[in-house]
């Protein structure tokens, strides 16, 4: 596909919650300029695996990760890795919009401020405006930046969370079911946004909505019982998957 080095690579990654192995020896490459979708039934390990990509599993007490994950060739689980810095570079958007109970402006300004990305107030305002624009929310909120972020509609809140993730200038954005709590129109806006953000960031999205995976991604990975069953071009996965299990799942024959 591309000769450029992979943005992120995972090699033989396993995740355990105590004794239970949730992800089994997964190896996968994540590339810039494209959206990678993770699909699979509930409990297949896709969200767990997604969270290993910015070490969100560190916050879960009994979770243990084996194998190697790199970002630009650097092992993100090495002792030298600054996890706060890592999560700025690999941002995350969750299923339920979770804006801070602060103003719209502060929601977006928070990250750049603590990461010292703005040298002046004007600088910060510029970052906030740019992030909101990229998240497709600027026109709707530019006149009420001091309103509370939680007063926005669900779809707007989710775009605010995307703006917040973008504000710290990440390289990779992980999205865990970013549209599953939204109505179809808000969902379409998120999908359009993903389309626009592609190229600027490597995007990985977990979704239960197969049509959504087919629409927004260029590569699709199908997970089942902790295994990565099939990983390939989205076009092929949804029209002519190689694996029987993939086919059964996407055609609704999964038992």
């Amino acid at each position: 596909m591309t000769d450029a080095p992979h943005k992120m690579t995972a090699r033989d990654v396993s995740v355990f919650y105590g004794e239970k192995q949730a992800v089994k020896n997964v190896s996968i490459d994540i590339d810039m300029d494209r959206v990678t979708a993770f699909i699979g039934p509930s409990g297949c390990g896709k969200s767990t695996f997604l969270r290993t990509l910015n070490r969100m599993n560190d916050t879960i007490g009994n979770a243990r990760v084996e194998g190697q994950i790199t970002l630009d060739g650097e092992d993100i689980y090495s002792s030298g890795m600054d996890v706060v810095q890592l999560r700025a570079r690999v941002g995350m958007v969750f299923q339920k919009p979770n804006p801070f109970p602060k103003s719209i402006f502060e929601n977006v300004a928070y990250g750049p401020r603590i990461h010292g990305l703005a040298n002046s107030k004007a600088d910060l305002e510029e970052i906030v405006a740019r992030s909101l624009r990229r998240a497709g929310l600027w026109e709707e909120v530019k006149d009420r930046l001091n309103d509370s972020g939680t007063a926005l509609s669900g779809g707007q809140q989710q775009r605010l969370c995307i703006a917040r993730a973008i504000a710290v200038d990440p390289e990779v954005i992980l999205m865990d079911e970013p549209a599953s709590a939204l109505d179809p129109i808000a969902t379409a806006k998120i999908e359009e946004l993903i389309h626009e953000l592609r190229g600027r960031y490597a995007i990985v999205i977990v979704t239960h909505n197969m049509q959504q995976a087919a629409r927004v991604s260029q590569r699709t990975a199908f997970f089942h019982l902790g295994n990565l069953v099939e990983y390939g071009d989205t076009d092929n996965i949804f029209t002519a998957p190689r694996e029987e299990r993939t086919k059964d799942y996407i055609t609704g024959r999964y038992g």
Binding site: M210, Q211, A214, F238, T239, A240, P241, T246, K247, I250, T251, G252
Partner: peptide, 8 residues
């Protein structure tokens, strides 16, 4: 919304 072999 058929997929894969169903769609074909």
């Amino acid at each position: 919304a058929p997929m894969a072999d169903d769609l074909r």
